[in-house]
Every structure is written in structure tokens, then in C-alpha cells.
Write a protein that binds this DNA or RNA. Structure first.
Lengths: 274, 274
DNA sequence: TGACGCCGTCCGAAATATCGGACACTCATT
DNA sequence: AATGAGTGTCCGATATTTCGGACGGCGTCA
């Protein structure tokens, strides 16, 4: 693995599009946003130096930014090695967001109900950039939980929700939307793009999607769309069953999912036919 | 050798307090932090112009900052009047914070238990600056709920938790810590400072605090400290009962509170004696 | 119709925040 | 002891960002 020091500033050709860092001097606010996104992806405390290395930012600048964010308690010191992670203020911002977003709040209530009704792990998911992300979840009951963290970005082809969330895109749009490497599954095998496109089309017809053995070999996933004002799947309701659950149980779960999602959805009827 | 921090550049006498920036040019990141804090206090969508007015910031700058934060989805457009509020990314940051802070997460589990055991509104509270703030809560069951929002800042003398959270301060420190206007209660009456100091002292002795008719006339509040590593009350567990609840029920609730808080607390024994 | 208040965008100029580098320090490892 | 890698701080210079103001729209009210 090549060492990445502050040198990679002059990689002009090999930097495709996003996070285009030319020879640039960046704004503090952009550095701050990058820093927070980095912590979100890494999901563990980092020191200022470490952040600077990963961001390709000057150390002195990162120290300054970290200080400001720490004063505002958007970051908090963790441990004794000068590391920081998200702070309490972020929790308050997040809670305020939830208060303002009736959609996600109501979805959370549906998760409570679904969790009680099924005992399985249930989630509410959405698109974030060109990735799939869990926005909220309730862990299943029982000795072994199947869990996944809120906020972790996952390639769309790995998930049932991914098939539902892309229903509003054409095949061509989907091809250019998803990075090619995302079609490689966690087990190393490659998912044929056409099969994924077929899955999306089928999910569009059926109003739900089921997958198994994709992200993990021991799960059977079901996802249904929560339709927004424009008839697009803004959110999904999703249930994670053990792969050996019987067909009857699956059918019951699916109908529960559909019922909750329809109640939550904005576009009442079957706009997806159009 | 005198230390030169970035602060003492313009040590003018005419700096009244925070917020009211005179003629100065501020950093983008500070503007951004101020903007987010403003939204947290206002708890409703605001337009860029409105934000600029409240912040005393140039309109053009605020538009720029809002654009950046919106691109990062830390803010989201709301309505059609160009208003913005916290965005989905904030929710993810907040969730990541919760994942990293075992203390608050465990307190949340205690709230679940307390809520089930008592049916009342229960909260986890802490200090934020020189104010009291609810970090997490579970609403009571029954027809009428007594609720309060996560993240709303409240004067410390209005609350039972306030009396518990200041146990580590001396009378003098408390006097200078709390803004004088915070001793005026919501009903307009003034709480004698000495009475508040006595309350804090008693809470320190008893290991809990009870108040009634302070923040509202119809509530009876109980608060107990969750002790941190240094034996200080970092968090409180708090229960809100109707003012007409009977003594027996109150006693039961208090003992439940104490049991949960002791289990959560770091300093096991009675460090407060020291 | 005109006056007013908003929103959103654009621009040049000047103040300054970012940057690179240097320093002192600690802690392991050689 | 010497080396290396890390943290945390400070400083001057310059490329840049903030700022103030102007502009064109839109809607409302008188």
C-alpha cells in the first residue's frame, strides 16, 4: 500500500471528479465538512494529524478547524491521544432534524410497530449520494441479532432497498449512477449489471424487492418503497430475516411491510403503473 | 515570555458579549456554527435573509454558507420560501455520536426501562453552557402527555436537574455561573438566589432533587445524578410526574430513578461525601 | 401604479484565513 | 544516545474569502 503523504496534491490527471483537490487552498467550511464526513465514514475517533493525512489538508489548518468545532461541541475529545469524535451538539442537531422531518419520524414509529409485530430487524433506508444508507433501525429480538449501523454507506447493488430506491431511473441512468466497483459483492463475486437492472425493473412492477445472499449469506431481505410526493421512493421500509425463515413467515412480513409503507407513503394509489 | 494566542489581537474594551459582532469580518466556519446554533434555538426553518438578520451577518455570506451546508445536506430546503432547516446528514452525525458515547446510549436504555416501569415522562439531561438541556426523553403514557423537546435550552434554576448538575460548584461559582435573569421563573416571579443555593446544597447531600411548580405549575420533577469519572454529575435522570401524584408513587419513582442512575454511574460509591 | 419588502445573484476590493514550515516536546524503538 | 513518528503551537506571506452594495425579480399593500 503506497504511502499517501501531503504529496498527492499534485495528482492532477488521476482525480476524476468529486472532492476535486487541485493545488487548492480550501475554505475552512469545506475542510470542516470534509472532516465531519470523514469521521462519519471512519466511525471512530481520529487525531488531528490523522485527519489531515486522510483529507490531504495541512496539519495546521486541521488543528484550527478541530479547535473551532470542539469549542462548539460539534466534536469532543476522546481518549488521551488527542483524538476527537462527534460531540453532543451533533446529537442535538440530529434530534432537531428528526423533529422537523415528519416523514422519518413517522417511519420510526412504523419501525417500532414492525419490530413488535415481527421480532425481526427492521430498517428505514434511503439514498445518500450514490450509496445506500440506513437511517433508522430496530434490532430484532432473539439470541443472535442481525444488525447494521445507521449511517454506514453501502453499495446499492448489495441491498434489496437499492433495487427499490432506483425505480425512478432508466437503465442508462442507473448504469451511469452506480460506480462499477459497487457491482462486486462482499464475497468477491461480480453481480451482472443486467441482472441488477432486471431486479430494479421487477421491483418497480411488484412494488417490493426481495434479495438473499447478497450482502451476507445468512440474510433474506425484503424492501418496500415509501413513496414521496413525486411518486418516487424517497425512503424504504426494510426487514432482515434469517435465510432459513419459512415462506409463510416471509409472506406475512412482506404484507406487514407493504401495509405500513402504504400508510406512510404520500402518493396514495399505484402511481408506479404510470 | 508572554503567550500570544490569536485572541488578544484586538483587546478593545468595547466587546460587550457574544453574538453581537461589531464591524468584524468573521470566518465562514464561525458563521456556519452560529447559523446552526441559531436554527437549534429557533427550531424552525429560516430563510437566508432571516438568518443574516438574526446573526448580524452579511446576506451574501449567509447565502454562500447555506449553499455549502445544503450541498453537504447538513441543511435541507423546506417549503417554497427559500427556507432551510437541519438536513439528513445531521441525523447521521448525531447517530454516529450516539454510537460512540456509551454513556448516553446506556442512559437511553435506562429511559426505556423507566418509562415502562412508571408510565411517566422520563428524561436524560445535562449542562450545555450555562443552561439545562434535555438530551433524550420518553414521553409518558396516558391521555395527557407532559413533554419537552430535546435540545431546548432552559435556565438551570427552573429545573430539578439544574440543582443536581451544579453540585460540584461552590456558592460563589454558581452565582457567577448563572445569568441573573435566569432566576426569574416562567410565571414572572423571582426565585431568591439563596434558596436556589440551598436547594443545590440539599441535592448534594441527598443525592437527588425534587421540585414542583417551577417550570410549570402542574409538574412534580425528580432528578438524580449519573456520576462521571470525576464524581461529578455529568448527566441526570429525571422524571416528570403530575403535581397531584400521591406520595407513595413518588417514593417508588424516586427509588427507581436512584437505582438506574447508580447502575449507570461511574463513581460507584458515595464520592459526594468527600 | 408606485412603493415597499422580500429573494437570489453577481461583482470588485480589501482584510485576513489558510497554508507551509519551523519549533519544542513526548514516547518507542534501535 | 540517536532516530523516527507523533502531538501541539506559533509565525509570516499571499492567495482567497468575506463583505458591501447593486441589480433584477417577485409578490403585496395602499
Amino acid at each position: 500500500m503506497p504511502r499517501r503523504t501531503g504529496q498527492d496534491r499534485e495528482v492532477d490527471v488521476s482525480r476524476p471528479s468529486t472532492s476535486s483537490s487541485s493545488i487548492d487552498r480550501q475554505r475552512g467550511i469545506d475542510r470542516a465538512i470534509g472532516l465531519l464526513e470523514l469521521l462519519l465514514v471512519r466511525r471512530q475517533p481520529m487525531s488531528a494529524g490523522e485527519i489531515a493525512r486522510h483529507l490531504g489538508a495541512p496539519r495546521s489548518t486541521v488543528y484550527e478547524i478541530v479547535k473551532r468545532l470542539t469549542d462548539a461541541r460539534m466534536l469532543e475529545p476522546v481518549g488521551s491521544g488527542g483524538q476527537v469524535f462527534f460531540g453532543r451538539t451533533m446529537h442535538l442537531f440530529g434530534a432537531a432534524y428528526l423533529e422537523g422531518d415528519a416523514g422519518l419520524r413517522r417511519a420510526g414509529e412504523a419501525l417500532d410497530a414492525l419490530s413488535a409485530e415481527t421480532g425481526a430487524t427492521v430498517q428505514c433506508c434511503a439514498l445518500r449520494g450514490n450509496k445506500y444508507v440506513v437511517l433508522d433501525s430496530r434490532d430484532g429480538t432473539g439470541i443472535f441479532h442481525i444488525t447494521s449501523d445507521v449511517g454506514v454507506e453501502v453499495p446499492l447493488p448489495w441491498t434489496a432497498s437499492g433495487r427499490v430506491l432506483l425505480g425512478h431511473l432508466s437503465d442508462g441512468e442507473i448504469r451511469s449512477f452506480i460506480p462499477p466497483e459497487d457491482f462486486r459483492l462482499p464475497d468477491g463475486s461480480a453481480l451482472p449489471v443486467q441482472r441488477f437492472l432486471d431486479d430494479v425493473a421487477q421491483a418497480r412492477r411488484d412494488g417490493f424487492s426481495e434479495t438473499t445472499g447478497l450482502a451476507s449469506s445468512f440474510t433474506w431481505c425484503q424492501a418496500v418503497p415509501i413513496l414521496g410526493r413525486e411518486g418516487r421512493a424517497d425512503l424504504t421500509l426494510c426487514i432482515v430475516l434469517p435465510v432459513d425463515s419459512d415462506a409463510m413467515q416471509r409472506k406475512r412480513c412482506l404484507s406487514l411491510l407493504v401495509a405500513h409503507a402504504r400508510r406512510l407513503g404520500h402518493a396514495g394509489g399505484d402511481r408506479r403503473i404510470a
